[in-house]
């Protein structure tokens, strides 16, 4: 229904205000038709806002959940597979550090550019004159788990609210924000699974057959390690749905003209008698979250 919202025969578009019928109760006659579920304090048709709010929720939380799962899988899978044992040639280190310095705009960005250029020069030299290059360890596990623990130690709502309120995010910005704060859970699940899988005989056999570790990781280990995400993904979507609604309720999520259940619920603050602006979107939200939880449970049983 959410995806078909633009094609549904709704009596009013979600962004249009019926100014003569503001905060009207359900089943009231409007300017050009019936407001089946009433209007909000700005005269918008609640039915249309609910349908398009569902669309907003789907279009925002589904990609965010998938992207967070992807990011978490890659990070957690790498951390679990290689731990802190991976090593990287010094020129690549220089390139990465220089790029980071420059990218994060540390003082005197030219220093970063210079270090990166040094790294590139060393890589070119190494390609021209093949000889052993010194390497430094890359503590993938420590970096990934450190980042995840840091993110987990800050209450997610506070973190998202602080960033969203400070920067005034747009819809793509909110998508990025939700993704970047939701990946640690997937990373922990995949890492835990990967720690078990990397000791299994078929992985050892692949190593013995001479396959590169990257190939083993991507083609053989990772597909098995991400199995728990089948259960976790619906729960992650449910969590993001709740978070998006909370942000919109607080007025710091999506732009005011984008239909959202959370924003509709917030209308009750200005119009305490308009119970339908709270009850109906809250029902939709609860039903969606319960359904997603049930889906997660059924996936878990099937595993």
């Amino acid at each position: 229904m959410a995806l078909l919202a633009p094609y549904l025969p709704l009596p009013y578009p979600p962004h249009e205000s019926d100014l003569a019928h503001v905060a009207e109760a359900p089943y009231s006659m409007g300017s050009t038709g019936l407001h089946w579920l009433g209007t909000d304090p700005q005269g918008r048709d609640v039915l249309s806002v609910l349908v398009f709010g569902a669309r907003t929720a789907v279009l925002l939380t589904l990609p965010a959940a998938f992207l967070a799962a992807l990011l978490g899988s890659l990070a957690g899978g790498a951390a679990g597979f290689w731990g802190n044992t991976r090593r990287l040639a010094v020129p690549y280190w220089l390139l990465a550090l220089g790029g980071l310095w420059w990218g994060l705009r540390f003082p005197v960005p030219l220093v970063g550019a210079g270090v990166a250029a040094l790294g590139v020069a060393a890589i070119v030299l190494a390609l021209l004159r093949p000889r052993p290059i010194p390497t430094w360890p890359v503590p993938i596990n420590a970096i990934v788990m450190g980042a995840a623990t840091t993110l987990d130690s800050i209450p997610r709502l506070i973190l998202v609210v602080a960033i969203a309120a400070g920067s005034g995010v747009s819809a793509p910005g909110l998508l990025a924000l939700l993704t970047l704060t939701a990946w640690p859970h997937s990373a922990r699940l995949v890492r835990a699974q990967m720690l078990r899988i990397r000791t299994l005989p078929f992985i050892e056999a692949a190593h013995a057959a001479g396959l590169s570790s990257c190939k083993i990781w991507l083609h053989h280990a990772l597909p098995h390690a991400i199995q728990p995400l089948r259960t976790a993904l619906p729960l992650s979507i449910a969590g993001l749905l709740g978070l998006e609604s909370t942000l919109s309720f607080l007025g710091i999520g999506l732009p005011p003209d984008v239909a959202s259940w959370g924003r509709l619920m917030s209308a009750i603050r200005n119009e305490p008698d308009a119970w339908w602006t709270l009850a109906l979107p809250a029902t939709c939200l609860i039903a969606s979250i319960l359904s997603l939880n049930a889906l997660g449970r059924s996936r878990h049983k099937s595993l």
Partner: peptide
């Protein structure tokens, strides 16, 4: 809320003419 209602009404009207309006509360 008065300003928000005005902005939403204006945006909807302008959109029907094909004029893009972005709202900045």
């Amino acid at each position: 809320t008065t300003f928000a209602t005005i902005a939403l009404q204006f945006k909807a009207a302008a959109a029907s003419l094909g004029i893009a309006v972005s709202l900045l509360p």
